[in-house]
Design a protein around this nucleic acid. Structure first.
Lengths: 230, 230
DNA sequence: CGGACCGTTGACTCTTGTCAAAGCCAGTGG
DNA sequence: CCACTGGCTTTGACAAGAGTCAACGGTCCG
């Protein structure tokens, strides 16, 4: 768990519920060069349509990348974890929202700096190519999961991915923190929060996982979980 | 309509129904350098897991890019139309199947040639970066559609995209050919063929579209169709 | 103490999937 | 020329999984 990272003066603004899309948060928050920005849960880093001036590197916490339909339905496209870049691509504007799901820390990098450098540095350009290719593979795997899986398969696959991430970052993979609310999971998998909750309850009653405090997951039966992930 | 392109000696093989994943099709079919390969409907260009030796440029027809789960469920990830590249990325193997949905023609390009050139040509590398970024945006838009939309919204959005494509390629956008079966559409949108059929029937009975011969679509009410696309 | 937010659970509805049958069309072969 | 066959689509009846609506409980925080 990341603990309660103290946030200085940024306030949480939600552009989809009436506030201006460009609040003072941006300028007040050290947005100039390669600075660190601290985020509290639910705080937006940027929104779809904002000019793409910066690229962000997640240092701590989790950031949900999402798109929102006119009527409020939201699809999380991906979660960015420490080490992931946010905002790559060659668009003039961001093409999705980026919102911290929990207290988080991101490094801010000028987009122009990175992409001008890439124009003369083939290695860097190839690195970008590779990073975007990886994002593409992730997006497509999620598409398969959402397009073809039952609720149980989607949740199980999601938990397997979290477990793999935890395992590969050295820690004990069978115990990890969700670092997000049920609504974030539902919006990722195309399910309602009720279905997410019910499915997690079912996994608990099957003895596959254990959940403490609604956010800490312990995988009790890894084999079973992988079977359920289809 | 592309008409009945004559296919020489390639036969249709389906790797997911018992045949070897590497039949003679590949070598017999002009796979060496920048050659043209003709495909009949349902013929595979390559499969997930095959070594990624070539990149393909679609010249005619439509190619479905898909992933298949162990039990046969299939998710179409994207359709490649004339002008689209297939197989970009930096993986040693293809990470999806590529299968013509109708008679098609593709140009074959050695993968090594392209990516070695990119290592010393920043412009080319940036071009690849841009191409993959575009694929990523497409995949994410489809994810939003599949994750959040009802059957009607998914079908309507799909038809709008086809119309836009037809319109931008010079022809009359309100009339176009599907160039694929209901199962391809269903596997793209995460729906069954029955639901696809029923939804198209409903659109017909609403006077939004007209379908002749099961494949030729005429959009009668563009405004309504866009409204339905969410 | 009260309120806001989040998660869980229950009852019910409804969209979509499943299963089955029939029609249509194209190609094949008698 | 026609009957037959196979692949594809359409349609209907029914089942089931997920969504909706509502209530309740827990936790955190002012």
């Amino acid at each position: 768990m990341l603990g309660a990272t103290t946030v200085h003066d940024a306030f949480s603004y939600n552009p989809h519920q009436g506030l201006s899309r460009n609040s003072g948060v941006r300028k007040r928050d050290g947005f100039e060069h390669a600075s660190i920005r601290r985020l509290r849960a639910k705080e937006y880093i940027f929104c779809e349509g904002d000019p793409r001036t910066q690229i962000f590197l997640v240092e701590q916490g989790v950031v949900a990348l999402s798109k929102v339909l006119g009527d409020g339905r939201r699809q999380v496209i991906d979660f960015a974890y420490p080490g992931d870049y946010i905002g790559l691509g060659l668009h003039g504007e961001y093409i999705f929202d980026a919102q911290a799901t929990c207290a988080a820390k991101v490094k801010c990098i000028a987009a122009s700096a990175l992409e001008e450098a890439a124009a003369s540095d083939p290695d860097l350009a190839l690195m970008l190519y590779k990073a975007v290719s990886a994002e593409l593979a992730t997006a497509r795997n999620l598409l398969v999961c959402v397009g073809q899986g039952t609720a149980m398969e989607r949740i199980a696959a999601f938990l397997v991915r979290l477990r793999d991430r935890a395992a590969s970052s050295g820690r004990n993979g069978s115990a990890f923190s969700l670092m997000m609310r049920r609504s974030d999971i539902g919006d990722l998998l195309g399910l309602t929060i009720e279905t997410v909750s019910r499915t997690l309850t079912k996994l608990r009653s099957m003895g596959v996982i254990e959940i403490v405090n609604s956010t800490e997951v312990h995988v009790l039966d890894e084999v079973k979980l992988e079977q359920l992930a289809a």
